[in-house]
Design a protein around this nucleic acid. Sequence first.
DNA 1: GCCGTTTTCGGCCCGACTGTTTTCAGTCG
Length: 576
Amino acid sequence: MGNRDVADLLENIANLLEIRGENPYRVRAYREAGRHIANMAEDINKVAEAGRLQDIPGVGESIANKIREFLTTGRLAYYEDLKRQVAPGVSQLLEVPGLGPRKAQEINRALGITSIAELEKAAREHKLSKLPGIREKTEQKILREIERLQQRTRRILLGVALPAAEEVVNLLKVHPQVQRIDPAGSIRRMKETIGDIDVLVASTKPVEVMDALCSLRIVKEVLAKGTTKSSILTRANLQIDVRVIHPDEYGSALQYFTGSKDHNIALRDIAIRKGLKLNEYGIFDVKTGRRLGGETEEQVYHILGLRWMPPELRENRGEIEAAAKGKLPKLIEIGDIRGDLHVHTDWSDGTDSLDDMVEAALERGYEYVAITDHSIGLGVARGLSVERIREQRRIVDQLNRKYAPFMILHGIEVNIRGDGTLDYDDEVLAEFDIVTASIHSGFGQPREKITARIIRAMQNPNVDAFNHPRGRLIGKREGYAVDLEAVIREGAKRGVAIEINSQPDRMDLDDVWARRAKELGATLVIDTDSHSKGQLDFIRYGVAVARRGWLERSDVLNALSLKDLLKRLHPARMAA
DNA sequence: GCCGTTTTCGGCCCGACTGTTTTCAGTCG
């Protein structure tokens, strides 16, 4: 029973209470508590054992008791009761946009409908419009939404959404009536997945901007077009919502539409206590109604007594308290990254040559790059034999003479076998400039076994980093079961860096765990795991995870200069 | 149900939109 289970339990309770039409603040209390637990890296069992459940924001006596019961017995009587009181399937109806708890409950009560399929049938037979508060239009809307629901794609990877948003931004920003333009929402916060792609424009001629948007060459279909807000479908089938704001209101609008929702709620709470009112049009004095600001985000935060903060922090995970005390972290930036330490070539499963990958790293302005092809055990990826390693080493040495002072580190992504041993003997591993270790098989092993296996690998003194620690592929594969806390502690103890893998479908570690790793004293390394030249640009996604995890330059191995990096990896060699 | 530089009780973010309404409830972001 882990954090996820508890968070899901609380969210489910909130949903059931909502359907029952309970006090909305009680519903929100469960939702809040669940969200904080989902955002927490520390194991809830440990927190419970230490009697610190009520230290979790949003968890009071009542919820703490329920969590304790759930953790010790595996079930919760209160939740079982609740489930019995709510007809099964009603919560499914809530998935239809436009149907909230009230209407869903009414539809279920009056017609006995418990699934979306039944709902669709009833709507077609015009049975819904006999109910109070529902007429022809609502019925039609429900049918449309069900249809959309069936063909809707789920959340989009940041690595897909961000380039799409940037394309629209770049095409529109040359328009003479566009004064400012930015991606907003979860894209601006650089969340690993994105629901809606939002773009914000500052202009005094919104209609002209809307016309320009809808006639862009990337537009496949105009889904909605208004005077200040339009939605387009791109040729890549991505929906992008664009809104135009008056330049005087751009700061408060950008703040508002960047979110997160929780962050904004907390800000407005501060505003209320100060006798102020905050909305997308500005920040106002409640008594006089006078507008105090809103042209820039900085203004909004300053009037609330806070420092401006990077969007990546705005998740209501303590950033507001930190901003009030002037204790915001100085987040790592993409320019702090001095090199990439996890890169593949066509020697194993990459598509570009060693030379090309090195050239691409140089072009990025790096001081170094580590070539880390796969080891022999990974047959599918053409893992290198010992002979091939030595051959590759000779070529790396040649290239190093050519490109000095830029340095190519000869590395390896060594496979951790089922028992925790590594693919090569220690003598072979000792020849590399950097050894990174990964799991590529045995994902189904029990948690204890995988954890022990990884820790054994980390205890090999040749290992410098542990790659994509959770083994997840977003939307495709859950990570393996592992006690990450123990793995990270081991890394901190042995000086093994923990990777933030920048591949858009990995983002592994994620933001929550990156922050926890910092707390536990581990060093992180932000890598792209590139399999082609272009993928070196993925580094910005890894940096985004790091920033969302509150990391600073000093937390990151490859923010070190080449000299300091070599000192860190090979203190003995450097002394010699 | 939670929480406290107003409070241990009485608040709890704000505005827009839609459809159903003759003044507002429900839903959403």
